[in-house]
Simulated assay, not measured.
Amino acid sequence: MTLLSIIMPVYNKEEYIDRAIQSIIGQSFKEWELIIVDDGSIDKSLSLCKKYENGKIKVISIENNGVSNARNIGLNMSCGDFVTFIDADDYVASDYLENLYQPQYDFIISGLSKVSKNSELIDTIKPLNNGVIKIDDICKNFYKEQMDTGIYGFVAGKCIRKSIITDNSISFDKSINLAE
């Protein structure tokens, strides 16, 4: 059963892709699918991704058209009740999905750690609010929190009920390449 779809856009990330995929394979939470959308990589990213392809890991190759387009294709192919996004140069702790998947809620926002290529901690970003928060309460501090942390400008560390996306025809704007 697929409870959570993980969408991973890839463009020229051969240096990082194995670690990213291995961190998903090693999750304690097992009811996931990984949809990798290679966005026309010209390095070895696609061939590295294809070696992981199986029933849980799907690899799609498209012509380069940007990260937002790749994410939309992943969304359209996803089968999980929830979706999350992990970039090809990210990696996650083994209990990441277990902590992120909270089916009693529609939208989960977690923190994240920024690390160097050598895995040295650069910064930790956490949402100001913790626990169950109504959208009106998030809106009160939205601008300040976004300016201080940038947390709402990236898709990492978010999990959303897929029906919210499909019922409201939500997609990524293909003209936006950063903080999409």
Rank of each mutant, 00 (worst) to 15 (best):
C139E: 12
G131L: 08
F107N: 06
I133D: 01
Y101D: 09
V37L: 05
A20E: 01
N64T: 05
K50D: 13
S116V: 07
A20F: 02
L75Q: 05
K58M: 03
N130A: 05
K51H: 15
G66T: 09
F107P: 01
G55E: 15
A88I: 03
C49W: 03
K56A: 00
K56H: 03
K140T: 05
I109C: 03
K50L: 13
V83L: 07
G74T: 01
T124C: 10
D43C: 12
E120G: 05
Y16S: 14
G111P: 00
E33L: 01
R71E: 09
D90M: 06
G80V: 06
S110Q: 01
E15I: 14
K114Y: 14
L46P: 00
N54P: 03
N129T: 09
E63D: 12
I60T: 03
C139L: 15
I17W: 00
E63P: 07
P103I: 10
L34E: 04
G111A: 05
D87T: 07
N65T: 01
T124Y: 04
A70T: 08
I73A: 10
F82I: 08
Y11G: 03
L34P: 08
N72G: 11
V115I: 13
D137Q: 12
S45F: 07
S94L: 08
N65D: 12
L100P: 02
K126N: 04
N12M: 14
